[in-house]
Every structure is written in structure tokens, then in C-alpha cells.
């Protein structure tokens, strides 16, 4: 009986305490209610809710507040799919600004070769900023990557490592384009570029051709050959230095093949040769898949059952049709 009383009084007391505090809180929640813009609640519910911080705001709630109150574009969230983004835009009555182009840091220097073009042996503090104070760095080319890894040290995502030619290597998957390495580089040779683009002018030297040749085998000499060969007007020559207009570049690789200095490179393909697609007409069934997938209108024949042909002048050798063809009758052949 005593036990029962003890249990009963314990339950009763805790229940009563809980009830009293609950009542006080519920009264207070009405008394001190703060009106929140209902659109913020809507935005929070439609954002992914992973709180990854990829947008640069403190969590999804932070971005939701920023979208509603400060007019930050919805596309700030890199995780939202196109459908989810459209839904959010509709719910908030805002414009769907489309996806943001994912960027990636890229080192605009070929850095080769490591030893022949060394000006002197640097034995000071292992820091690029310190090294360039001594006679503008230990390399003959004043624009070459110093190679002491100030960018590697500053990368908060472990996306950079120092490669064998004293040139940093960037892991595209880990890079978030935060831009820390861009500011850390005293030579300003790291640039944020479209993650999908693979053709880069790997030089940052505005010196005249002969001066570049004296100090580097793979630097841009401003010879204009790439500009002439480019069918898409995607190359601009400024200060004796070729620059790619990434919005125009289709990555056909014509300039990569033409560049006499091997300054322009196709990322991941060391000995790049431009290629064009060729359709084996005997095997082609005229399914129109290659016609639909081609972004350059380089495939002839849009009507079903008609055999397709590639228009060589328009084909850039991107390989989209090769991947799509169900009959596997399209191959890429190097251009002579």
C-alpha cells in the first residue's frame, strides 16, 4: 500500500508540475507570438532541408529567409532539382532563375618543365607569397606557378594536392569553387571556370612571343593560330595571350590540335586529336536518336527510317551521338 501511495504521489506531482508549466508555456506562446512571414515557412518546407550550407547561408532556414527578405535568387541552392526549383518559384511567386553553373578552380599554367627553367634554388619559407619577394620567384618565367603550395595549404576541402611538376592538381569533385586558392595565389593563375569545360589556355603570361619562348616551352606566344582555327569565335587574344570565351566554346578541340606550343589543352586527354563522328550507313536504321541528341545540327536526316549522315563541317566530335546510338554504328575518327 505504501508503495502504491508513493507511486501515485510521484505520478500526480510530476503530472501536475508538467501540466502547470505546459499551461504557462501555452499562454506565453500566444502572448509573445512573433508573426513570421508565411512565405519563409513555405520556402523552408520546399527547400531540401539537408542544411548542407552549399548556398552560403546558415542552413535551409537561412536561405529561405534570405530569399524572401533579401531577394536572393532561388538558384542559390545548388541541390534543388529543376522541378523542385520551379515548384518553389511558383509557391513564392518569384522568377525561376535557372540553375547556376557549377564552377571549379583551374590552374592556368602548364608548369612544364620543372627544372630546366629554374632561375635559382629557393630555400626560404615554404610560401608562394614569400618566395616571389625574392627576385620575383625561383622560375625564369615571372608568371609561372611558384609551386610552393600556398593554394594547397589554404584549401579547406582538401581538393588540392601538389603535383610532380611543382604544379597543384585540383580534384574537381572536391572543389566547391570557394575561391580561397584564387586569392591565395600571388601570381593570380588560378581561375574559377565552368566545371563542364575541358579546353583551357594553360598560360597566364602577357609577355611577347620571343620572351615567352626564352623562359618556357609550353607558354602562349600569342601567335593567333587558335583564333584563326576556331569556328565559334571563342578565342580572344589580349596582351599576347589567348583566352577562351567559355560561353562560346563547344570544346571541339580544334585549337588544342593547332596550338604549336601545346599551351591549349584538353583536360584529361594528354595527346588530344580532334575527331569527327562517322556513321556506318549499312548498320544505321534511321532511328533519329543521333539527330535529336546532336547539339550542333551536324546530323542529316530527321525523318524516321532515313539513313543518317554526319556533316563534317558541323561535327565537333563531342561523342554525344556515339553514346546514344542503339546500333553502335557511329565511331569517332581522328581528323587528318
Amino acid at each position: 500500500m505504501a508503495t502504491l501511495t508513493a507511486i501515485f504521489s510521484a505520478v500526480l506531482l510530476m503530472g501536475a508540475l508538467g501540466f502547470v508549466f505546459g499551461a504557462i508555456l501555452s499562454y506565453a506562446s500566444q502572448k509573445f507570438a512573433v508573426t513570421v512571414d508565411p512565405r519563409i515557412e513555405t520556402a523552408i518546407s520546399l527547400l531540401p532541408g539537408a542544411n548542407c550550407g552549399g548556398c552560403g547561408f546558415p542552413g535551409c532556414a537561412g536561405l529561405a529567409t534570405a530569399i524572401v527578405e533579401k531577394g536572393v535568387p532561388i538558384s542559390s541552392c545548388p541541390v534543388l532539382t529543376a522541378a523542385a526549383r520551379a515548384k518553389l518559384a511558383l509557391a513564392l511567386g518569384l522568377a525561376d532563375t535557372g540553375p547556376t553553373t557549377p564552377l571549379v578552380a583551374t590552374v592556368m599554367c602548364n608548369g612544364l618543365p620543372a627544372e630546366e627553367y629554374r632561375k635559382f634554388e629557393y630555400n626560404g619559407i615554404i610560401d608562394c607569397q614569400a618566395a616571389i619577394l625574392v627576385s620575383n620567384g625561383p622560375w625564369l618565367c615571372p608568371h609561372r606557378c611558384v609551386g610552393l603550395g600556398s593554394c594547397v595549404k589554404v584549401c579547406p576541402f582538401g581538393a588540392m594536392t601538389m603535383g610532380e611538376n611543382r604544379l597543384p592538381i585540383i580534384d574537381k569533385e572536391k572543389c566547391t569553387a570557394c575561391g580561397k586558392c584564387v586569392t591565395a595565389c600571388p601570381k593570380a593563375i588560378i581561375k574559377l571556370v565552368d566545371k563542364e569545360k575541358k579546353v583551357h589556355v594553360k598560360c597566364n603570361s602577357p609577355e611577347k612571343g620571343p620572351d615567352v619562348r626564352k623562359v618556357c616551352k609550353v607558354g602562349c606566344i600569342g601567335c593567333q593560330l587558335c583564333k584563326k582555327v576556331c569556328a565559334y569565335d571563342a578565342i580572344i587574344i589580349e596582351n599576347n595571350l589567348a583566352r577562351i570565351d567559355y560561353s562560346k566554346c563547344v570544346q571541339c578541340g580544334a585549337c588544342v590540335a593547332k596550338c604549336p606550343q601545346k599551351t591549349i589543352i584538353m583536360e584529361g586527354v594528354p595527346d588530344f586529336k580532334p575527331r569527327k563522328a562517322i556513321i556506318d550507313e549499312a548498320a544505321c536504321v534511321g532511328c533519329t536518336l543521333c539527330f535529336k541528341v546532336c547539339k550542333f545540327q551536324a546530323v542529316e536526316g530527321g525523318t524516321p527510317k532515313e539513313k543518317h549522315r554526319i556533316i563534317p563541317a558541323k561535327c565537333v566530335g563531342c561523342g554525344a551521338c556515339v553514346a546514344k546510338c542503339p546500333k553502335k554504328c557511329i565511331v569517332l575518327k581522328p581528323v587528318e
Binding site: A10, L17, F21, A28
Partner: peptide, 29 residues
């Protein structure tokens, strides 16, 4: 009621309610 063994439990209840209350007041004011 000789319920001292409920100290921790009831104190946490009190503190949690108080904090909630303070939070509401601060948020408003």
C-alpha cells in the same frame, strides 16, 4: 512527499520550461 529522488527529473522540467519561456520573451522583445 519524500519524493527527493525526482529531483533531477523535476528540475530539468523546470529549467526546460523556463528556457522556453525566456526564449519566447527574448524573441518577442
Amino acid at each position: 512527499f519524500q519524493l527527493e529522488y525526482l529531483q533531477t527529473l523535476s528540475f530539468i522540467l523546470v529549467i526546460a520550461s523556463l528556457v522556453q519561456f525566456v526564449e519566447m520573451v527574448i524573441r518577442k522583445t
